[in-house]
Amino acid sequence: MTVTNTTPGISTITLSTLLRRWVVRQADSETEWVESQLNTLRQGASETTLHRFLGLAPRRLGREDLRLSVSDLKEAEQLRPDWDPKGWSLDGTARIAGLLAFQGPRPFPALFKDLVRTSDARELITLYRGLPLYPEPLVLTHEVGEGLRSNMRAVFESIAHFNPYPRDHFDDHRWNHMVLKALFVGSRLQPIVGLEQRANPELARILLDYAQERWAAGRDVSPELWHCVGPFAETVNAYEALSRALDGSPAERSAATLALVAADTSTARSLLADAPDTLQLVAAGRIDWNHLTQEEAA
């Protein structure tokens, strides 16, 4: 199971080799054990040996965060664009390195299905974080769907956040469902890779309905929601809702301004005339979707 970078101008390296390097560097007294285990897995070990390694990794290596340098993150980006391993744990990285190294008798999707079925929450988070790196990604969609339906927010976010898999492989229906569920469970939208690229009129319509239902029930609306609505404000007739958001909290006002700038219609420009100060901050780059208030930007 070898996934190799083919980007011109970058030295060829497998994902498994990169992860192995990171783990070995941080493994301290367990370096020899890690090297030996990964070598065994690469040479055609049994699935029993793989399961034993996956089970022992947290006990042998601990669960501290993986320590990555700026150059490590740059190499990760070059090898797998939009893959962001920040926040990965040492043992989780070792587990994914083991899965990528393993040369077993069964196709990877069958192995992955069994692992998902028998894993606890922490193991599921590791498995789903590795989605951008696995072979045959399209065959994993059923198990990914199970993760999206999870009631555990951390499991859901291991797929939805900092993970290019949904952007690359979800159809619009599943993508829209994921974004809506993120709002339902209180997850942020900005960590969703491809949020702006995959925006679509149906999602804008769904989110507009969701916002109006929240307001009708006397509940707040996440300002991030308008990021997916702005480009289609004309199509879904969102101007009344955006005008209301302009009169809301500082974050809501900023989000509505950004959405209306993205809409770039005569009606949008007319509404923006009522928010000259916020529009000026947007034009100066002091407010964006990652920093909806000046306090966040500071």
Rank of each mutant, 00 (worst) to 15 (best):
T49F: 04
T49C: 03
H51I: 11
H51N: 14
R52Y: 00
R52G: 01
F53L: 07
F53D: 06
A57C: 12
A57F: 13
A57Q: 14
R59L: 15
R60T: 13
L61I: 09
L61V: 12
G62T: 03
R63V: 14
R63H: 13
R63W: 11
E64N: 13
D65N: 13
L66K: 02
L66I: 02
L66V: 05
R67S: 09
R67W: 04
L68G: 02
L68Q: 02
L68F: 03
L68S: 02
S69P: 13
S71F: 14
S71K: 10
S71V: 12
S71P: 05
L73W: 03
K74C: 06
K74A: 15
E77D: 13
Q78V: 01
Q78F: 07
Q78W: 10
L79Y: 10
R80Y: 06
P81Q: 04
P81R: 08
D82V: 02
W83Q: 00
W83T: 00
W83N: 01
W83C: 01
D84R: 11
D84G: 04
P85D: 00
K86S: 15
G87T: 01
G87A: 02
G87Y: 00
G87P: 08
G87D: 02
G87K: 00
G87V: 01
S89W: 05
S89I: 08
L90S: 13
G92A: 00
G92C: 01
G92I: 00
T93M: 10
T93V: 11
T93H: 10
A94R: 07
R95V: 11
R95G: 09
I96D: 01
I96G: 04
I96P: 01
A97H: 00
G98M: 03
L99P: 04
A101R: 01
A101H: 02
G104R: 10
P105T: 12
P107R: 08
F108I: 01
F108N: 07
F108T: 01
P109D: 13
P109T: 15
F112V: 07
K113A: 15
D114R: 06
L115Y: 09
R117A: 15
T118K: 15
S119Q: 09
S119T: 10
S119I: 07
D120P: 09
A121D: 14
A121V: 15
A121W: 09
R122S: 08
R122K: 02
E123V: 07
E123Q: 15
E123N: 08
L124V: 13
I125A: 11
I125E: 15
I125P: 11
T126N: 03
T126H: 03
L127V: 10
Y128M: 05
R129D: 08
R129Y: 10
R129T: 10
G130A: 10
G130E: 12
G130F: 09
G130T: 13
G130V: 13
L131M: 13
L131C: 13
L131A: 14
P132Q: 03
L133Y: 07
L133Q: 07
Y134I: 05
P135S: 05
P135F: 03
P135E: 04
E136T: 00
E136G: 00
L138P: 04
T141I: 14
H142N: 06
E143R: 10
E143K: 03
G145T: 12
G145F: 12
G147N: 05
L148Q: 05
L148N: 05
L148I: 11
L148G: 08
L148Y: 09
R149H: 06
N151T: 04
N151F: 00
M152N: 14
M152L: 14
M152K: 15
R153S: 08
R153C: 03
R153M: 07
A154Q: 12
